[in-house]
Amino acid sequence: MRPDHLALGQLIVAQLKTQISDVRQIVQRGELSDVTSGEQVSPSLYVIYVRDVIPGDGQSMEAQNHILQQWMVVVAYQGGADQMLAKAGELLAKARAALLGWTPDAALYEPLQASTPPAAAYMSDWGYFPLLFTADFYA
């Protein structure tokens, strides 16, 4: 039986919680609009599934398949511009250090690699600063 296809999200949340203590919450969300439109606390880290990329020409029902799975970690911070950028920068560095090269389960995943994230977003006195990670996933 193949594993939970989106299990990596909870593994990322757990890894961030063990490595970063100076945030009010680290949780998984469905998409960035879930973060920006809902109730928020500052500072927070949100883990968001982005997509799968299938290398090659297709997949097989019988064999283990290689999938490039992308997950975003978004730092959400409320405050003035200088304070926001300084604190977000610190949290981005901690999240990157916690996840870059980390292998959540060697039987299913290769070490996480950094990918080009979407642009940061600013709304009122909130800033949303994303990192994007790609995991080679075998299912």
Rank of each mutant, 00 (worst) to 15 (best):
D4A: 14
A7T: 08
L11N: 00
L11G: 03
L11Y: 06
I12A: 02
I12K: 03
I12Q: 02
Q15V: 06
Q15T: 05
L16C: 07
K17I: 00
I20F: 05
I20Y: 05
I20K: 07
V23N: 03
V23A: 05
R24Y: 09
R24H: 10
Q25A: 12
I26K: 02
V27Q: 10
V27H: 03
V27W: 08
V27P: 06
V27F: 06
Q28Y: 06
G30R: 13
S33Q: 10
S33F: 06
V35W: 06
V35I: 09
T36L: 04
V41M: 07
V41K: 08
V41L: 07
V41C: 01
L45M: 03
V47I: 01
V50T: 11
R51F: 02
R51G: 04
D52F: 02
V53H: 14
V53S: 15
I54Q: 13
G56R: 11
S60A: 11
S60C: 07
E62V: 12
Q64A: 09
Q64M: 06
N65L: 01
H66N: 14
H66K: 14
I67E: 12
I67H: 14
L68D: 13
L68P: 00
Q70Y: 15
Q70K: 15
W71D: 05
V73P: 04
V73F: 01
V74T: 11
